[in-house]
Amino acid sequence: MPFATTDDHVKLWYEEAGSGQPIVFVHEFAADHRSWELQMRHFGQRYRCITYGARGYPPSEVPEKPERYSQDRATDDIAAVMNHLGIDKAHVVGLSMGGFATLHFGFRHPTRALSLVVAGVGYGAERDQQAKFRGEVEAVAKSLREEGMEAFAGKYAYGPTRVQFENKDPRGFAQFKKELGEHSALGSANTQLGVQGQRPSLYDLIDQMRALTIPTLVLTGDEDWPCLSPSLLMKREIPSAALAVMPNCGHTINLEDPDLFNRIVGDFIVQVEAGRWPRRDPRAMTASITGMR
């Protein structure tokens, strides 16, 4: 099996499809590398596509201590996979936890990103929600440790921003829930404690956002309630960002509506490749509503 090794000696399993400009897909907390299969097939017809399992997600290695997991490590693990494959620059596409890692990749490794797709990002990001979110992180980790992965999946899969997926595609949802139940309870608990629970608020990263010039697509479902306001924040503060909202969609947008997701992301990458992705005109950022004052 193919593995890349990180700077702190953790083995990450990866797979590839296609050839051309590289695209790296970074998965969310409740998914793994398998969740990008529909994107690997679609984009693999024109690009070199790579996806991998985050640390804590078999067949990637599962470090035993939460201290081996953090937002910075999750971000730098993208670079580790690229380094192993000899990739200097790539389009990086991430959902939720993977979207946070993608955004931070733009902050920490700006010369290595051709573009960023920051999808489904915002859970716990607002300052007045952080204490509540961290409390839920502790509850999730406790459930994982005490009840195990399968019992946890039977509850977590039916969250308020995932029922849309079940209603729209029961067969796809059943596969998602089954694969969630196959994860490592230890790895998932450590990911919650080390990555999810300790990451900084987006509202504390505004200076970094304003300095970001990499072509960026912010993408969210319109029923992914915790991500709507943070998505507007990123659109407003990142001068190279556009915002796309997928109608009647929850959180797991690449699985829930893969055709629309692939079309939006594909059009974005084509514009970037053509050198036609704009930066915001400063005249659009005025205090005046009409521009007359």
Rank of each mutant, 00 (worst) to 15 (best):
P2S: 14
T6L: 13
T6F: 06
V10C: 04
K11Q: 09
A17K: 15
P22A: 10
I23C: 12
V24P: 00
F25A: 06
V26P: 03
A31M: 12
L38F: 01
L38N: 02
M40W: 11
Y47G: 07
A54Q: 14
P59W: 09
K65Q: 14
K65W: 02
P66V: 02
R68C: 02
Q71S: 08
Q71L: 13
D76C: 11
V81Q: 09
H84P: 01
L85M: 14
L85P: 09
G86F: 15
D88E: 11
D88I: 00
V92Y: 12
G94Y: 11
G94S: 14
L95P: 06
S96M: 08
G98M: 12
G99N: 08
T102K: 02
H104D: 13
F107A: 01
T111V: 02
L114N: 05
S115N: 04
L116Q: 11
G124Q: 07
D128M: 11
Q129T: 01
A131G: 10
K132I: 01
F133R: 08
R134S: 00
K142S: 12
K142A: 14
S143G: 07
R145M: 06
E146F: 11
G148A: 12
A157D: 09
Q164G: 00
N167F: 03
D169R: 14
H183F: 04
S184P: 02
S184H: 05
L186N: 03
L186A: 09
S188K: 01
Q198H: 03
I206H: 11
Q208L: 11
M209L: 06
V218W: 10
E223S: 07
C227S: 08
S229Q: 15
L232C: 00
L233I: 04
K235D: 13
R236A: 05
R236N: 04
N248R: 15
N248K: 15
T252W: 02
T252R: 01
D257L: 05
D259A: 09
D259L: 06
I269W: 07
I269L: 10
E273Y: 07
P278K: 03
R280T: 13
A287W: 15
I289D: 11
G291M: 12
G291E: 08
